[in-house]
Amino acid sequence: MREKTPQRILFLAFLFLAMSGLFLSARPSAVVLAQQPTPSDDEVNAIAHQLFCPVCENTPLDVCDTEACRQWRDLIRQMLAEGRTEAEIKQYFADNYGVRVLSEPPVEGFNWLAYVVPPVAFLLGAYLLFRAFRTWQRLAKEPATADSPQVPPAAADDQYAARFEEELKKRE
């Protein structure tokens, strides 16, 4: 009863894969950009893309057409020319305009909830489902009693599938 069936191992492996993807995929690390006289549009945009316009809702800074954003892009360019790193520039913006300019809440304090709640809820769901599976499997192993619920007769789709498989076997 307690031995691990191949199915169960497969199921657990599958769950593990799905979850490890959730937890382990790396957060992009800060890249130190080479210092040069006038930073190109691409270098500016690489950082601007990770910042959000504090004026318009949910618009990344690299594609925002307001005058404010234009000035902020110029500011990024200037800071890059001064040799500041990407991390420093992002920190500067967060300090001056609030953490909402960052594309994700910084992992600290109350914001931990943002990152903890979804995986915990998902694992809880997975656990409940796993327990339900075990109950149903136990039912399958017990001999049927008179008052155990009846499985409805196979529907048309199943009958079709069965006939189809039979036909195939005959031909092969």
């Binding site: 957060r27 992009p28 959000f52 949910n58 990344p60 609030g98 953490v99 909402r100 300019v101 960052l102 594309s103 994700e104 809440p105 304090g109 109350f110 914001n111 943002a114």
Partner: peptide, 11 residues
């Protein structure tokens, strides 16, 4: 907390 945050595409 009174602090506005953005939950953007990377999340």
């Amino acid at each position: 907390t009174g602090v506005k945050v953005t939950v953007g595409p990377p999340f």
